[in-house]
């Protein structure tokens, strides 16, 4: 049990720090767009590639924040049925749901990885390759998987605990 909790803490820390790393990109996103508008207003010249850079910045911020969002249960679900279930049934449905989510996360990780290296598309203006950004789908998938795995083990624990 101790080892599991230790691993759990590491996963949670990792998701949190990844999200922190991602969220700072909101500031350059904000600044870039603002400077682009100002530059257009004053010098009549936009910042080249603002559009596609914004897309990449958004990708970084969102994909790195995906697992943390799950950690704080930010991905919403419908609760009005499960709320009425007994603790054991609820634990059972939670385990099943976490399993379903693990499948999705695994697919995102696997295909995110495969697709990232297959992809030869670059951004149109600045010719920045998509590959590193697509690779973040893999990062999002694998960290989401870890978070769901933790939730899954916890729901299993309460399922078994509920039996006693």
């Amino acid at each position: 049990m101790g080892m599991f909790e230790g691993t759990g803490r590491v996963i949670k820390k990792a998701s949190f720090y990844l999200c922190c790393a991602g969220m700072v990109f909101v500031m350059p996103l904000m600044a870039l767009t603002t400077v682009d508008v100002i530059s257009r207003a004053i010098w009549g010249k936009p910042i080249p590639g603002t559009f596609e850079l914004s897309e990449y910045l958004l990708a970084v911020a969102i994909l790195l924040g995906a697992a943390y969002t799950q950690q704080v249960k930010g991905h919403v679900g419908v609760d009005f049925v499960t709320k009425r279930l007994g603790p054991r049934l609820r634990a059972l449905s939670e385990s099943l749901c976490n399993l379903g989510c693990m499948i999705i996360a695994a697919l995102l990780a696997w295909q995110g990885y495969e697709r990232a290296f297959e992809e030869t598309t670059v951004s149109d203006m600045l010719r920045i390759p998509q590959t590193p950004f697509r690779l973040l789908v893999f990062v999002a998938g694998i960290t989401l998987f870890a978070e769901f795995l933790l939730d899954f083990v916890n729901s299993l624990k309460s399922l078994i605990g509920g039996e006693k």
Partner: peptide, 25 residues
């Protein structure tokens, strides 16, 4: 198989959605 990863990438790298974090912050 590739649908989920491709679509997620397409959604997170989509300029019109940058409005969401910008307005929220």
């Amino acid at each position: 198989l590739p649908l989920l990863a491709d679509n997620l990438y397409g959604s997170v790298a989509h300029y019109p959605y940058t409005i969401i974090p910008l307005f929220v912050i």
